[in-house]
């Protein structure tokens, strides 16, 4: 039981932090793609589409992430899919991120002057091209600070996937803690690693926000 040295603990935690980073990236990129689709649906003129997208966003922003992960983890097997914890974690966090990103970007789209749309339409561009070429690029740029801020939230959210058994930083910490009985050291180090991951992003988001003229509070 006493075979863990402090450096063993640090090294194993740092190795596990790679999986935290990998999951964050997968969820941010996947969530970005799905989020754009949700955004497109959300601002679509067809009411049923916009309402469904709104329901999707409300669902993921109105329920605990832990429960979302449980539903993916225990629900997909009911559909006949064999699912590993890392898959459930990736899917769950992708859905979660897509809802938040869609909502952040919608803020950007709605803040754009109406004239932008009208001018683009007047040029004879179809709606989808307006969105892709004119509206989205501006909205994404404008909402960069809150998007980076959400990235911090996402890094922190990955810790919850430890509960469904994905062996990222937090789950590794729990396993080590149960073998060493040194919770103060183990969780202290884990907090330090998360801080080292998140703080630079927070600082970056703040700098972006201070630099831009637009403010999007959440």
């Amino acid at each position: 039981m006493d075979e863990f040295s402090t450096s063993d603990i640090v090294i194993n935690l740092l190795l596990a932090a790679r999986w935290t980073l990998a999951l964050t990236l997968v969820a941010f990129l996947g969530g970005g793609v799905v989020g754009l689709l949700i955004l497109a649906a959300r601002i679509d003129p067809r009411p049923w589409l916009a309402r469904s997208a709104n329901g999707y966003i409300g669902l993921f922003q109105g329920t605990p992430l832990l429960l979302q992960l449980f539903l993916v983890f225990f629900g997909l097997p009911l559909l006949g899919l064999q699912i590993e914890p890392w898959m459930a974690a990736s899917f769950g966090l992708t859905f979660y991120a897509s809802a938040y990103l869609a909502e952040i970007w919608r803020g950007g789209v709605e803040a754009l002057p109406k004239g932008q749309w009208e001018a683009a339409r007047a040029l004879g561009l179809p709606r989808s091209a307006c969105l892709r070429l004119v509206v989205l690029p501006q909205a994404l740029r404008m909402t960069l600070p809150p998007a980076v801020g959400f990235l911090v939230q996402l890094v922190k959210a990955t810790a919850v996937t430890s509960i469904i058994g994905y062996a990222e930083l937090m789950r590794t910490a729990n396993a080590i803690n149960n073998a060493t009985f040194e919770p103060f050291t183990v969780y202290g180090m884990v907090a330090a690693i998360y801080f080292a991951l998140c703080f630079p992003l927070t600082a970056y988001a703040r700098r972006l926000e201070a630099g831009g003229q637009h403010r999007f509070g959440r």
Partner: peptide
């Protein structure tokens, strides 16, 4: 967004389909 409970629930059900092993 929280005014949308019925829609959210409908979406939840819409997201699911079921089958037995």
């Amino acid at each position: 967004m929280f005014r949308l409970l019925p829609q959210a629930l409908a979406t939840a059900v819409g997201l699911l389909a079921f089958c037995a092993g």
